[in-house]
Design a protein around this nucleic acid. Structure first.
Lengths: 152, 152
DNA sequence: CTTGTTGCAAAAACTTTGCACTGTT
DNA sequence: AACAGTGCAAAGTTTTTGCAACAAG
């Protein structure tokens, strides 16, 4: 997940959409372009609070929502229902893909394989709208340190 | 999803685990053996309340949790994070499988295809713990009546 | 009778909303 | 100067917990 490139692209897209670039938003964008995994609203709030002791939760929520509506962030509900955000993979890489997700650090690795490209032998009468495919596990780093986190 | 067979199996399993069969639990089990899709805690509460105007939410929650811990119910967080439960497919059918899920009525169709059986060319160093594969769409019935519900 | 289960009430966690003030443009 | 964005406080949801009364075995 590129740092300066993604950072600038995200800020640009903000102004393109007629949004103002406040310090809070700049920080938010920084946080996500510096981190290649998922963060919960609370994680984000904590990171934000280091720069702005006075940030409020609702600002975090509002901006997370805004940025994901705008396509800058990807929101995912984990298997256990927790809401998480991460910076979207860059538009260049922006072909359809899925992710390996580390249960411990929640960083991700993109996977090109998509089950929908195969002949799934699905019932004819079911109209497909969408699908979801995620692989959960432990990345190399976390395999050594991690007490196994529960999956769901 | 069998009705009387599943109903009895579920009650049996309750007593096997040393749990008491209360009217509330009997009703809960009935609800799930009569319905082949996912229900939210609130859905369940509403259905329960028809039989027991005085049921409390916490009883619903407690029992949903108990029954899924015991393996009688399957809990799933949808793509939009909503928590849902459904009766587990019977032990006989209980080989690994995934589901088509109707976005409108939330009924399910099992799918035998599992992406993990293929050679996914994953990074060697990632230790897989778990995976998730779901296909969302509209079942035949709902294709005709349904105003498309948003997916996530 | 013993002990698990329930309903109530209250609280915790998470997310959203209204409003006056502030900071970007 | 105009108005989008922020912080605060308050409220809406969903889920959990403590406790006394109750009911299943």
């Amino acid at each position: 997940m590129g740092t300066p490139k993604q950072f600038n692209q995200m800020l640009e897209k903000l102004t393109q959409n007629g949004l103002r670039v406040t310090e809070q938003r700049r920080t938010l964008v920084r946080i996500f372009s510096d981190y290649e995994g998922y963060l919960s609203p609370r994680d984000v709030y904590n990171k934000m609070a280091k720069h702005y002791p006075g940030v409020s939760f609702d600002t975090v929520y509002r901006n997370l929502r805004l940025l994901s509506d705008m396509g800058l962030l990807e929101q995912l509900y984990f298997m256990d229902g927790r809401s998480k955000f991460k910076g979207c993979c860059l538009p260049n890489d922006h072909h359809h893909h899925h992710h390996l997700i580390c249960l411990h650090c929640e960083k991700t690795v993109p996977v090109d394989f998509c089950p929908m490209e195969y002949d799934l032998d699905l019932p004819q009468n079911f109209q497909i709208v969408n699908h979801r495919f995620e692989i959960y596990g432990l990345c190399e780093q976390c395999q050594h340190q991690a007490p196994i986190t529960k999956t769901s």
